[in-house]
């Protein structure tokens, strides 16, 4: 019994032979719909902040530095590549690219920063709920937002009109830590 099993095992191992890929010397093609690094098209982005509102890892930040200028920052070091931002974007400004070899020694290499000139909407002041008909997918954080880009922290306070005080306050935001 023992011997027949071992012979069978030997055949099982011999048949497929070596299956290890010779990566990175050989690079097999990447599947077409791989969810790789997201890419922003700044021409299409309207700065609604939908992506930052719906990012499960909260790595897309929105900061209004003044009435007209909104900075959007994508921090790739925390991204889980779920592709939710690309789904949610009403303008199709985000695409999930095929690039996956994104190990780097500088965080800035995988950070995308958009500076958007914003108009003031007559109806609601700032945000665009667009045609999202799914009640649980509507944007929660409307108006002006003050995420802290230095600390890479999403601050969940918003205001209907631009508030320099909140902006200043968020500047002093510190990540919680027990080292005093």
């Amino acid at each position: 019994m023992w011997l027949t099993s071992k012979i069978k095992q030997l055949l099982m191992v011999m048949k497929p032979g070596v299956v290890t890929l010779n990566y990175p010397a050989e690079r097999p093609p990447v599947p077409k719909n791989l969810r790789g690094q997201p890419v922003w098209d700044h021409q299409k982005c309207i700065g609604c902040g939908g992506c930052s509102d719906h990012c499960p890892s909260r790595c897309i930040l929105t900061r209004d530095v003044c009435q007209e200028l909104r900075v959007m920052l994508y921090d790739g070091s925390r991204c889980t590549y779920c592709g939710r931002c690309a789904d949610i974007c009403p303008e199709g400004a985000i695409t999930m690219s095929n690039s996956f070899e994104i190990a780097c020694d500088d965080k800035d290499d995988i950070t995308t920063r958009l500076e958007l000139f914003m108009m003031t909407c007559q109806r609601c002041g700032r945000c665009y709920e667009m045609e999202k008909s799914n009640a649980i997918d509507r944007i929660n954080l409307k108006g002006f937002r003050y995420d802290n880009l230095e600390q890479r922290a999403l601050v969940r306070t918003t205001s209907e009109t631009f508030s320099p005080e909140l902006l200043k306050e968020s500047d002093n935001y510190k990540r919680p830590s027990d080292k005093e």
Partner: peptide
């Protein structure tokens, strides 16, 4: 161990084609 994981690898590639990722299909 080697052979079970060799067979399993095909399903990982299938998922990559299907969902865009080997695991955490989303």
């Amino acid at each position: 161990f080697m052979q079970a994981w060799r067979v399993r690898e095909q399903i990982m590639w299938l998922c990559e084609r299907l969902t865009g990722n080997r695991k955490t299909y989303g």
